[in-house]
Measured scan of single mutants.
Amino acid sequence: MTEYKLVVVGAGGVGKSALTIQLIQNHFVDEYDPTIEDSYRKQVVIDGETCLLDILDTAGQEEYSAMRDQYMRTGEGFLCVFAINNTKSFEDIHHYREQIKRVKDSEDVPMVLVGNKCDLPSRTVDTKQAQDLARSYGIPFIETSAKTRQGVDDAFYTLVREIRKHKEKMSKDGKKKKKKSKTKCVIM
Rank of each mutant, 00 (worst) to 15 (best):
L133N: 15
D47V: 04
Q99G: 03
R102G: 07
M67P: 04
I55F: 05
L56S: 01
L52A: 13
D54T: 13
F156E: 02
A18F: 00
C185S: 15
V14M: 10
F28W: 08
D154E: 10
L52N: 12
I139W: 06
S106G: 11
V125W: 09
K172M: 13
T2N: 11
K178E: 08
C118V: 10
M111Y: 02
T50D: 12
R149E: 08
R97S: 06
E76Y: 14
S136R: 07
I100G: 02
V152E: 09
D38I: 00
R68I: 04
Q22V: 02
Y32Q: 02
T2R: 13
G75L: 02
D105M: 15
I100T: 06
H95A: 15
E107K: 11
V14G: 12
P110L: 03
K177R: 05
L19G: 13
V152N: 08
F28K: 00
M111G: 01
D119K: 04
K5L: 01
T127Q: 06
F90L: 12
F82S: 13
L23G: 12
E98R: 12
Q131W: 08
G12P: 07
K101H: 07
Q131D: 06
F28Y: 08
M67K: 03
M72N: 07
V29W: 05
P121C: 12
Y137M: 14
T74K: 13
N26G: 12
K16D: 00
T74L: 05
M188W: 06
R123A: 10
K117T: 14
M111A: 03
A130I: 13
S145Y: 09
T35Q: 00
T35F: 00
D108C: 08
G115I: 13
T50K: 11
R135E: 10
L79D: 01
F82G: 15
F141S: 02
V112H: 01
V109D: 02
Y4R: 13
D30T: 15
I93S: 14
A66R: 07
D54R: 10
K128D: 07
A83Q: 12
D105C: 04
G15V: 01
Y40I: 00
L56E: 01
L120E: 10
D154C: 05
V7S: 12
A155T: 07
D30H: 15
A18Y: 00
Y40W: 15
R73I: 09
T58F: 00
E49P: 13
A66S: 10
D173I: 11
A66C: 13
Y96A: 06
K42F: 04
T35N: 00
A83P: 15
P121V: 10
A83W: 02
R164F: 07
C118R: 11
S122L: 08
C118Y: 09
L113G: 02
Y4F: 11
Y4D: 04
E62R: 03
